[in-house]
Design a binder for these strands. Structure first.
Length: 526
RNA sequence: GCGUCCUUAGCUCAGUCGGAUAGAGCAAUGCCCUUCUAAGGCAUCGGUCAGAGGUUCGAAUCCUCUAGGGCGUACCA
């Protein structure tokens, strides 16, 4: 709707006019403060300018009224326009809020190391990324969801060591020397048992088999992770393993040209001039590549696959990494601007008001799957999607578990269920309801209709600004309006029953579409 | 130290391409089910938008400084 009004104004005035939604609906559906900025230029008072502009519209089919109030120009959409738009949406529910944007986007997110199950911090990135994915696809972008698997390097060696020590200690009852860093947790005990039964005790003792066990375990763990993600409706199109990339190393190094150099037996990338503090080692003097090396080949591979844009969702602790990866991208001959990195800030947990420190290696992590079990995937998704991802988020784990009926996701779903109940209860057929006209609604009903029809611009805004919380915020507001309307207005048996039910169908459509973009299913009955 | 993200109600958070009276949820208090699902609605309480300057018709929003916090500042991932 906003686009339509905006386009109309652009044609009329030959420039973009800022449109806002007034908080007070008595000011109309849209308004613009344009007269204020014009007043200096035209040397006239904003009031007079607004009055002149408003009256220049005369009768227009899209607007029921265009008025000037205290320098603002307020637009009220015509009932015919709203009715026509709502009817179109109801009969084209799949297209409602969708668009035909063009462009291919590679979205990489989660990419948690395959050394343990996902914890609650990963969940935030997963929910944020998947919501972005659903929004982008709805808008027509051709998006690929990718998971980068760090299946090489120190953490894989450590996984093998940890696995053997765990087995020798708990299964074989040996006294073992624990290194400073190692992985632990229930999943590791389970894996050790599986090693014992599948490969025998020797496999737990023979240090030369660590690597083999580590690679075996990492596949098992990746399966765990994929299942965890599946439980919250997150699916990936592609998985790229770090280890598989190293065949390309020589070619990629040659491609970087002067971007890399050798010093004292180490290979470094010249990132210092490109926003980084200093140059970074990519290959150690013993020939082992660093983590950055893998990322360089990976990003080269990404760009060679030829997407138009790239979005990475990283944990905020990786933010210092952006400059060096972008430096590598420009040395590789690509435009670093095409890579957009969204940081998802830390999730810090409180337990009974006290900070709850998580440590993956000490096994004190709060696993995502445990939280999902407690509160359900819907609530988890709604909660994380509601928070701006660039703010550190803090919540009490006990409080989160307690959330049941007070959870906003139920509030929104309840609104949808109420509508479905009414539709089922009414003796009118869907056809009859659809034939009703939405002209002549009360002010409250008009407000509800307008709110419901805002969904498309919320979707667009949420995706383009990467601020996915705008969608859950909107759904909460829409549900609140619905609940109030439901309370105030008796629908069944109302003389305008058809009209009101049609209005509610539009609301239900927006809620259902909105929820599905959050990876949550709308309920018909609760 | 430097970089970076932040600081809004008792708590958790929205609101920032500068606009009309700063909003929700939770918590607290009180009302509303012989009425389509009370998983709901209504009302009350609660704010120096961290602080100080600046920009202008107008600032929670933009700029500068100060204070406080998170994260980073590895040849770890």
């Amino acid at each position: 709707m906003k686009q339509r009004v905006s386009a109309l104004l652009r044609d009329k005035f030959n420039c973009d006019i800022i449109l806002e939604k007034p908080k007070d609906r008595s000011f109309g559906h849209f308004s613009t403060p344009i007269a204020f900025s014009l007043s200096k230029e035209l040397r006239k008072s904003p009031m007079i300018i607004a009055e002149e502009i408003a009256s220049s519209f005369g009768e227009h089919e899209m607007f029921g009224a265009v008025e000037s109030v205290k320098g603002y120009i307020n637009f009220r959409l015509s009932e015919a326009f709203l009715d026509e738009y709502a009817s179109w949406a109801l009969s084209n529910d799949k297209q409602f809020g969708s668009d035909d944007k063009k462009g291919t986007i590679l979205l990489e997110f989660v990419s948690a190391n395959p050394t343990g199950p996902l914890h609650i911090g990963h969940a935030r990135g997963a929910v944020y990324g998947d919501t972005l994915l659903r929004l982008g696809r709805h808008l027509g972008y051709d998006m690929t969801a990718e998971y980068y698997v760090n299946d090489a390097g120190n953490q894989i060696d450590l996984l093998g060591t940890s696995l053997q020590l765990e087995g020798r200690s708990t299964l074989l009852g040996e006294e073992v020397q624990w290194p400073e860093k190692y992985y632990r947790g229930e999943y590791l005990s389970d894996l050790a048992k599986e090693v014992q039964s599948q490969f025998g005790d020797d496999a737990l003792r023979d240090e030369s088999r660590q690597k083999e066990l580590a690679l075996w375990a990492k596949d098992k763990i990746l399966e765990l992770i994929i299942n965890d993600l599946k439980a919250i409706n997150v699916h990936f199109d592609t998985f790229v393993g770090e280890a598989s990339l190293y065949d390309e190393w020589d070619r990629v190094m040659a491609k970087m040209g002067d971007g890399v150099y050798v010093d004292e037996g180490k290979t470094l990338i010249r990132s210092s001039g490109l926003g980084d503090d200093h140059d970074r080692v990519v290959v150690r003097d013993d020939g082992r590549p660093t983590y950055l090396a893998g990322d360089i080949i990976y990003h080269n591979q990404k760009f060679e696959r030829g997407f138009q844009n790239y979005i990475n969702i990283w944990g905020a602790d990786h933010h210092g990494y952006i400059a060096r990866v972008k430096a590598a991208i420009s040395f590789l001959g690509y435009d670093p601007e095409k890579l957009e990195v969204q940081l998802s800030q830390m999730v810090s947990l409180l337990k009974d008001g006290e900070p709850y420190k998580m440590s993956k290696r000490a096994g004190t992590v709060i696993q995502m799957s445990d939280v999902v079990e407690e509160i359900g995937a819907d609530a988890l998704r709604f909660m994380f999607a509601s928070k701006k991802c660039d703010t550190a988020l803090e919540f009490d784990i006990e409080e989160l578990k307690r959330q049941d009926s007070s959870n906003p996701v139920y509030y929104v779903q309840y609104a949808h269920a109420r509508i479905q109940t009414l539709i089922a209860k009414s003796e009118m057929s869907l056809d009859d309801i659809m034939k009703s006209s939405l002209i002549g609604l009360s002010a409250d009903a008009d407000g509800l209709l307008f709110e419901a029809l805002l969904l498309p611009e919320i979707i667009e805004d949420a995706f383009e600004s990467r601020q996915v919380q705008k969608l859950p915020d909107y759904l909460k507001a829409l549900a609140a309006k619905l609940h109030k309307f439901y309370y105030d207005t008796r629908i069944i048996g109302n003389e305008d029953e058809g009209k009101l039910l049609k209005l509610l169908l539009v609301v239900a459509l927006s809620i259902k579409t909105g929820l599905s973009l959050l990876g949550i299913e709308a309920k018909d009955r609760m």
